[in-house]
Design a protein around this nucleic acid. Structure first.
Lengths: 242, 242, 242, 242
DNA sequence: AATGAATGAGCATTCATTCAT
DNA sequence: CATGAATGAATGCTCATTCAT
């Protein structure tokens, strides 16, 4: 729960002056990794863009993998901290959900550093260790949502029979799909509308519906469906009565 | 929309006899890619397992990437065809949604060929072309759901104000998250329960709620939330009245 | 005892035509390693001298280390086989010892491939595994001497109270020193004279001396020494009598 | 012949206070080089163990090679001085030889600093300059033996027809082999027994044997050998007489 | 005297891909 | 139809060494 990402061996004893270098490298590395993804990025390019030698980069980070990990960690730490600070300022479970959803979309879509693709891609790294570390970072990032939903379950605002992880999966899974659709197919979503619609659907699905309402809704749906099928058959010219 | 995945240049002129070879290679390649992921798999290993030379593999496929693409395509074609065949046998929009959800989980979790990780990982490939091709395959695979929801919208069973892609994202996004959680953190989901819960939530969120019910539900939720906050404040010893 | 040096993984299934390549590489690698020693040799230089790419070299040998090992093994196998063939043709234990000693010096000094330095150097490799493998090769190479001495012990020609390994160490240790002295200080030994003198001394030291002769010799030596010291003291003007 | 090992350029102008630093570095470097050998040791590790920067090390020594050289030189100087002091205290050429042999084995085997492997390995360095410098150190170290044998030759205790270097090679060559066998194959020799046996053999081989005795011994050996071969032939069922 | 910081130069190894036979 | 053989091109990483401060 605490420090899941180990600080590079090599950074342990660095002085103040070099902290600047570390930051510089992280900035450049973020750019490079964002542009090409992890595999296609090279340590040489990162070094070149900084006008330093590769050796310099390796004197601050243990390995390419380590460097990329730190880049992702820094980014997650930033947005996690922001989220942790802002969510409590919002009042009400539904508004909080809405805030989290909108914030996530805004952050990833408006982010100028191209982290969206990197994070979505590397979050699915085939490398187990890498994937595990990112999973840790995500745990922190999604904690606010978890807290909101957990409290809402206790207060009765959210149905108690659904495991929190499953609800989290719905929230972030839906958004990742939206974002990936944007990345790959260039279908840029309208953030406000999408956030509103997602929140609406999610909150509806999380709400504890009274049995009566639920049954009523289901009855209505089934009747409507049966009716549609009837119409559909008729439309195909099948002689129903004769 | 049509033939999105180009057949390998080299396969165009191949005879019938060699079709068998193609299948054999695809089978072995599927194993290898599943085991190590795309990047860590080597054409040498694929060739060795078949007891042929690497050159033979390359005489049937243009490149490693092409081969992997075909592997994924074949798999998607299989499950897409199955889905297209089976979904119409289910009656009712909700049962169809449930069927699609459950089928997806069953397929990916019980699949002995380890395609789950490969598909989830490579579906997020940083390579734009690759990602685009997989997006095409997914379009076909998700078409049945699209049809179900589209029809349901027309029949009034599903609210008409939500874009179909967004609903699709909710369905598959949630499931991908569940599956990835399983892959990385070894949290194996109970398929039947998860499918039921997901369907329940999704269907609820897709259902057209009458304004009255919706308003009523929201009112109920807000009152409950306000009450909770009141209690919480009181519990912390804050003087409420003064 | 048998095949101590594993054949390169990669060479297992090579055809006839490529056997030539293997030989070619070994020839060139022998040159390069001989000239610079293991550490300072580069795979690039070996490849360049053959006008092939480094990759070609690595397709026949697993690693630089493996290649060097094979070079050394081939050489040891050659001279071991020769020795095994020739020693039995010599009659008599002492002549056999002389033959082995002379042959060793001739082989290492007249060898145009510069293996002398490589073998002497790498035989003392700090790398334990490497050292172990060379030790195996040496075991075979020194076996003929061992057999000669062992038989001679049984026949009473060689004193039985000395362990064979210690006698082997005397034989080869002395020669290695002679050779190294040549390599480093350019003191080229006269092979025939050195071989004769070494054999003479070694055989004398291995001979079973009868107690009487030994005692007599020792008595003689002690008297001579005492006499020398007496003379030496007197020469320094020390008052002997007081 | 005089100062063969040049003092590091950088040390020339250093004051007294820094002499302490030099000693400290040499102590740590000895440890490191002993543990990993020259090639695998890094200046970084040496610096780290001293809690100073690499730059500090390089301000006292010209190069890694220079440092290692000094380490070896210091060690050789120590044991050379000791030998030079102690050998004269022993009376008699043979006892002196025995002392030198035993001392050498004891020193190298019981040495806690692991110099044995380093010295044996680096004494065979492929680097000509390095090898030459070590050869110089060895010259001093082996001088006492040279003196002993030289005097013994003059006094008639040792045969005069063998060049001193060759006798030296026999003495130290044999021991190096014994020690290397220990290092690589873990055959730890019994120091006292080995020293006694080596001395016995060496002294015998160095002793001036009268022509009569020598001839007699050789005659005896040849007869014994011939007899053995006769018996061996007979034992193989060869009809000797018919 | 000490060092933080930087680096030039080097190097083994991998692997998809091609092509003559 | 198959393949043995060859390779171009790439790349992460190490380490002794220097120098301004």
């Amino acid at each position: 729960m605490s420090a899941p990402i180990k600080i590079s061996r090599k950074r342990e004893a660095l002085g103040v002056r070099s902290e600047r270098r570390v930051k510089e490298i992280l900035v450049v590395a973020r750019q490079v990794f964002s542009e090409h993804g992890y595999e296609k990025s090279t340590t040489l390019e990162i070094a070149r863009r900084m006008d330093v030698s590769e050796a310099t980069v390796f004197s601050y980070f243990d390995s390419k993998r380590d460097l990329c990990m730190q880049v992702i960690k820094v980014w997650y730490d930033e947005i996690s901290a922001e989220l942790e600070r802002e969510v409590p300022l919002v009042v009400g479970a539904r508004p909080q959900l809405h805030f989290i959803v909108r914030k996530h979309l805004v952050t990833l879509i408006h982010d100028g550093t191209g982290m969206c693709k990197l994070v979505l891609s590397e979050g699915r790294s085939a490398d187990d260790e890498f994937a595990g570390l990112i999973a840790d970072l995500k745990r922190r990032y999604t904690a606010p949502l978890r807290n909101v939903l957990s409290a809402a379950q206790r207060s009765g605002e959210v149905r108690p029979d659904i495991p929190l992880p499953l609800m989290r999966d719905m929230v972030y899974g839906a958004m990742e799909h939206v974002l990936w659709d944007w990345m790959v197919n260039r279908n840029k979503p309208d953030i406000d509308i999408t956030a509103a619609q997602l929140t609406d659907m999610l909150w509806t699905s999380f709400a504890p519906i009274s049995p009566e309402l639920r049954n009523l809704a289901q009855f209505r749906a089934e009747v409507a469906g049966a009716l549609r099928r009837l119409d559909s058959s008729a439309a195909q010219g099948m002689s129903v009565i004769g």
